[in-house]
């Protein structure tokens, strides 16, 4: 009963947070300077034309009326139509989100695995030459300027060596022909590797440093001494007792990275012409495309809130099932 009340309380809390975010988003966009057509600089458009366009977008109505329509639409599953593209926002997000997830999820997960692995090694060999090399490399990766690094990769691998395409998600000349599905998949992979490499390197630094620091702190714990006293091998202590506990902050960080990857990769998407949601979000904000921008931010809010929901409902189950089950500690 007490658990049910707790879960119910959390649900209400999240719902309120979500509602506040929705409201804030609605008013923030309306309060920002200009409107969806303020960027239009065509002298042939008269002020009357502009008023008519605004009216057709429904932006001539009082702001409270617009807000009620917005809430009504949202709760009936209607996210509206993009002012810019004239397409349902849901369709745009569905098309773009897939590409973002494909690129960012793979790069984040790969970087997290590599970061945990290399961070573990660095911490285990603290003070050695290997540790220094790894730590300095991680710092370099962490502080790399994304546009510079992305352009460098494109210049070397795409232009000079000609091994990879210069951006995009596929080779049009191949797709307009009769290429098989296997070749098309290979083509997408081919296009994905450079942006993937960029994001992998950028993320790797932070995960490696986080894991190293976490591992060093875990290695000072009493249960590690106990494990040694029990005569366990160094490998078992390092991999099973220390690394799994030390990986917990990395897992938290990965969760947040996934949530923020929706907008965080806009620069990478821009340079590699990757049609993801980050580029779309920046574009929607700068063009005052309210329905699209609101939906993108709501999606971010949803992704941030979603792990909390998941945590409430299933934390006891999934935390035990994961390979990072804390060893040497007692779960209550």
């Amino acid at each position: 009963m007490r658990n049910q009340t707790y879960i119910l309380g959390k649900l209400v809390e999240i719902t309120i947070i979500f509602f506040v975010i929705m409201t804030a988003l609605f008013f923030l966009f309306r309060l920002s300077p200009g409107d969806p057509i303020s960027k239009v600089a065509d002298p042939m458009l008269t002020p009357e034309d502009m008023r008519y366009i605004i009216e057709q977008m429904g932006l001539d109505k009082p702001i409270w009326e617009q807000y009620v329509i917005y809430l009504k639409n949202f709760f009936t599953g209607n996210f509206g139509v993009s002012f810019h593209y004239g397409e349902p926002v849901f369709k745009i997000i569905r098309e773009r989100l897939g590409w973002t997830v494909l690129l960012f999820t793979s790069s984040t997960i790969l970087a997290a695995f590599a970061g945990v692995f290399l961070g573990k090694i660095a911490a285990w060999n603290k003070g050695s030459r290997l540790d220094n090399v790894l730590s300095i490399s991680a710092l370099v990766c962490y502080t790399l300027f994304i546009p510079w690094f992305a352009l460098l990769l494109l210049w070397v691998f795409g232009f000079k060596l000609g091994l990879f395409p210069l951006g995009g998600i596929l080779s049009p000349e191949l797709w307009v022909g009769n290429a098989s599905w296997f070749v098309r998949m290979l083509d997408i992979l081919h296009h994905m590797l450079l942006p993937l490499m960029t994001l992998f390197v950028i993320h790797l630094g932070s995960y490696l440093l986080l894991m190293r620091s976490s591992m060093l702190s875990v290695l000072r714990e009493d249960y590690i001494i106990t494990a040694r006293a029990k005569g366990l091998s160094e490998r078992v202590i390092r991999n099973k007792h220390a690394a799994k506990n030390a990986a917990l902050p990395v897992v938290t960080s990965v969760g947040l990275s996934l949530a923020f990857s929706i907008n965080g990769g806009a620069l990478t998407e821009q340079i590699f012409t990757w049609p993801g949601i980050g580029r779309e979000l920046i574009f929607a904000v700068s063009n005052n495309d309210y329905p699209l921008a609101q939906a993108c931010f709501l999606l971010i809010a949803l992704v941030v809130c979603w792990p909390i929901w998941l945590w409430i409902f299933s934390m006891p189950i999934w935390i035990r099932g994961l390979p990072i089950e804390p060893q040497g500690m007692v779960l209550e």
Partner: peptide, 8 residues
């Protein structure tokens, strides 16, 4: 085809 930056 689309190019996100003029450099590319």
């Amino acid at each position: 085809r689309i190019y996100g930056t003029s450099d590319v």
